[in-house]
Design a protein around this nucleic acid. Structure first.
Lengths: 155, 155
DNA sequence: TCATGTGGTTTCGTTTTGAAACCAGCTCAG
DNA sequence: CTGAGCTGGTTTCAAAACGAAACCACATGA
């Protein structure tokens, strides 16, 4: 059977994972944040088979996460660049990074680090503020089911 | 061939995705945040085949994201509960949720929403602060390679 | 005690992944 | 302008993962 798709779900998490939840996609996006743009750059960085990379890039373009642009170096080739939708994944990638730092390294093991470009110092932790500014953790928030919205009750 | 594993990489994002990047895992974690604990609850919520669910749960337990606990209702069954490592995925799940809200719904389409439990109001956006408190976006931060560690700096 | 619910495992067909070979269009040295 | 090598793929084929359904053991509860 085909890979299960969760198109109808009202859960934004499921929809997000449906779009970019296949493991390679977010790594491609991570590399795109790091400035990679060309097919060959992604392939070298990720070390995955070219057919898979081609399929993933096609998918990400179809999703609107990446878009094809003429090469910036004047050659006749093309580049894959993040769209605004793709750049929106920034916090997701950072979240994965911070979790990986916390839980996936042996003590003392070397790792790359995310630094604030203008100050050259590491960034702080992601924060989830409530309306009043308090920072929320896993036990402070719950998902509320989608309100069964009648026609145009927005606002 | 085997599914490619990125064990040696110094990139925390890759390690994180290696652990929970298979699509179902983060949905299971999402459901665990929502209070689901039993095999049958996950299966009903996600609608995936039982063999797949069993394999994923085994994996997540092996990774230390979930752990088995005796059922809280006194029966002889067991429950899957988030470990601290698993709860650490909170910001990742929230990040996916907010991205999904922003980019994966048609305007006006109903969606579930994450609310601050104590105030019953929706949470704000995730934020990534720099050391000085400024909030950083995709263009304000850059990954710095792991420091090349000399010979026996391994402690 | 026997029917049912829970939490799986097994089996088997389909889909996806991955490696390698292949190939077409571009680029560049000569 | 020409041929060698690069870039960015596609094709082919085997191995692995996924998914549905059947099966099964133990717990529960009427």
């Amino acid at each position: 059977m085909k890979r299960t798709r969760l198109e109808g779900t009202p859960c934004p998490v499921a929809r997000a994972l449906d779009a970019v939840g296949d493991g390679w996609s977010l790594l491609i996006v991570r590399d795109a944040f790091d400035g990679l743009r060309r097919f060959g750059e992604f392939q070298k960085s990720l070390g995955l088979a070219k057919n898979i990379l081609a399929a993933r890039l096609r998918l990400l373009v179809a999703e609107g996460v990446l878009e094809l642009a003429p090469a910036s170096d004047g050659s006749a080739y093309q580049e894959y660049v993040l769209t605004p939708k793709g750049r929106g994944l920034f916090h997701v990638v950072v979240g994965l990074r911070q979790w990986g730092e916390d839980h996936c390294f042996a003590p003392g093991e070397e790792r790359s680090v995310l630094v604030d470009l203008s100050a050259e110092r590491p960034v702080r932790r992601l924060q989830l503020p409530a309306q009043d500014g308090r920072l929320l953790g896993p036990d402070d928030a719950v998902v509320k089911k989608a309100p069964v919205r009648k026609a145009r009750a927005k606002r």
